[in-house]
């Protein structure tokens, strides 16, 4: 089978460099990512490979370079190999993740919620308060997130800010593996983001109204009419659609034709 983007057969002429995959030496084309280099060497992934596009967090990887004491991290699918690189991928990350009920604070209302929410974080993830401020997590994060900063924000109860700062987390867990205070930063942040989404962000009122309209059957008749339409008729509706301007003001634009509203 031809797999243009992933098989590396066409790269045979490219310069090869030595890398150590878990201690064994292989020569691989220098332009490959760690993930493709591992496959070029003949491995077939079971663990440690997911989206192959830098967003799923399956391929967190540790490596060292010759002559450098530092332990480096990256996502295998996003990091290009270097000569002499010593590579180890993480198959799994054990993390502290207590169960919780995100609906537990429904009575508190948006305004009064933050204190109760903060208290729940304190109870569920007490280790967050053990942070020693070493910033290893921030240096470790392959997404460039200032992890220590959001841990501090969680500690101070600034949950909305912590949610925002941790948003691009891919949950690879590399921070949690390196943390000397044994915090599972990524799972604590997951909880905080869900609280922020549910309680610390105003609800979309237009959405609530629309759901009520749908549930009251407001569109049922019109949809039935559309479903029953002959193809020509539907095609003509489609071709003559009015397109909302790209830069229209949120919620303000009024279409000329309101027949199907």
């Amino acid at each position: 089978m031809s797999n243009d983007n992933d098989s590396n057969g066409s790269k045979n002429k490219e310069k090869l460099i030595p890398v150590q995959i878990m201690g064994r030496l292989y020569d691989v084309p220098e332009s490959l990512t760690i993930m493709k280099a591992v496959e070029y060497a003949g491995y077939q992934y079971v663990r440690g490979c997911g989206c192959r596009g830098g967003i799923c967090g399956a391929c967190g990887t540790f490596y060292r370079l010759p002559g450098d004491y530092q332990l480096m991290t990256g996502l295998a699918c996003q990091t290009v190999v270097q000569p002499g690189m010593m590579i180890m991928q993480l198959p799994y990350v054990p993390a502290n993740r207590p169960n919780y009920d995100v609906e537990a604070f429904d009575g508190n209302g948006v305004a009064g919620a933050n204190g109760a929410l903060h208290e729940s974080v304190r109870r569920l993830f007490p280790e967050v308060y053990r942070c020693v401020g070493c910033a290893t997590c921030s240096r470790t994060c392959p997404m460039g997130i200032d992890v220590m900063d959001y841990v501090a924000l969680i500690g101070r109860g600034e949950l909305a800010k912590a949610a925002d700062l941790s948003f691009s987390c891919v949950m690879c867990g590399l921070c949690a593996i390196r943390c000397p205070a044994e915090i599972s930063q990524h799972t604590a942040a997951m909880y905080v983001r869900r609280l922020a989404g549910r309680y610390l962000t105003p609800k979309a009122e237009h959405l609530t109204r629309r759901v009520a309209e749908v549930q009251a059957g407001r569109f049922d008749g019109k949809l039935a009419q559309l479903k029953a339409m002959k193809r020509d008729e539907l095609t003509s509706l489609y071709t003559n659609r009015e397109r909302e301007p790209d830069l229209s003001e949120p919620g303000q634009w009024k279409p000329k034709d309101a027949a199907w509203l």
């Binding site: 979309a204 237009h206 959405l207 629309r210 749908v214 569109f219 019109k222 949809l223 559309l226 539907l234 509706l237 489609y238 659609r241 909302e244 949120p250 919620g251 634009w253 009024k254 279409p255 199907w260 509203l261």
Partner: peptide, 13 residues
């Protein structure tokens, strides 16, 4: 979900 939209336009699209 927006005021100028409806499931009908979504259907047509």
């Amino acid at each position: 979900t927006a005021e100028a939209d409806s499931p009908c336009y979504h259907y047509i699209d």
